Each structure stands twice: as structure tokens, then as C-alpha cells.
Simulated assay, not measured.
Amino acid sequence: MKRTDDITVVGSGDIPFGAVPRPRLTTTFFDLPSAAAAVGTTIERLLAGQDPAPASPLTAQPHLITRDSA
């Protein structure tokens, strides 16, 4: 069994160590600072009596960093 041919390992959080081992670990992460900023902006708009910006999603979008393990 070969680890890169028969097994796929994916991590979460994009910690720096994921790029160190061989094969390097594919990972996912959420841009939480951007999501928090969008929530803060929405709260400010609601407190000001405005509608929340329709083009600002309030969900964190996942990102995939493909490395050697996938």
C-alpha cells in the first residue's frame, strides 16, 4: 500500500506543521477573521437601522490548500 496512491489524508486548520512532513499535508481552513468582520459590519448596520448588506455572506467559506497528500 502506498500512502499517496491508496490513502488520502487531509488536515484542518492549515497549521504550519502541515507543510513540513513528506508528503506535505493537504489541509482546509476557514478565514475566520473575514467572517468575524462581516458579522461585525452586519451588526453595526442593524444597530444603525439599516438592512444588512445583501452581498456580504455571513458564513465562513472553506479554503482548500492542496499539497502532496491529496
Rank of each mutant, 00 (worst) to 15 (best):
D31Q: 01
L32C: 02
L32S: 03
L32F: 06
L32T: 06
P33K: 00
P33N: 01
P33M: 02
S34D: 08
S34W: 03
A35E: 02
A35T: 07
A35M: 09
A35P: 02
A36W: 00
A36T: 03
A37K: 08
A37G: 05
V39F: 02
V39D: 01
G40N: 11
G40M: 07
T41C: 01
T41I: 03
T42R: 13
T42K: 09
I43P: 05
I43H: 06
I43F: 10
I43V: 15
I43M: 13
E44S: 11
E44V: 09
R45T: 03
R45H: 06
R45M: 03
R45D: 05
L46G: 00
L47H: 05
L47C: 10
A48N: 12
A48R: 11
G49R: 02
G49C: 04
Q50Y: 12
Q50H: 14
P52L: 08
P52F: 07
A53S: 13
P54N: 09
P54Q: 09
P54T: 10
P54K: 09
P54S: 11
P54V: 09
A55D: 13
A55Y: 06
A55T: 12
A55K: 11
S56Q: 14
S56F: 09
S56A: 14
P57F: 12
P57C: 11
L58W: 07
T59E: 12
T59G: 12
T59D: 10
A60W: 07
Q61I: 15
Q61R: 15
Q61W: 12
Q61D: 14
Q61L: 15
P62S: 14
P62Y: 14
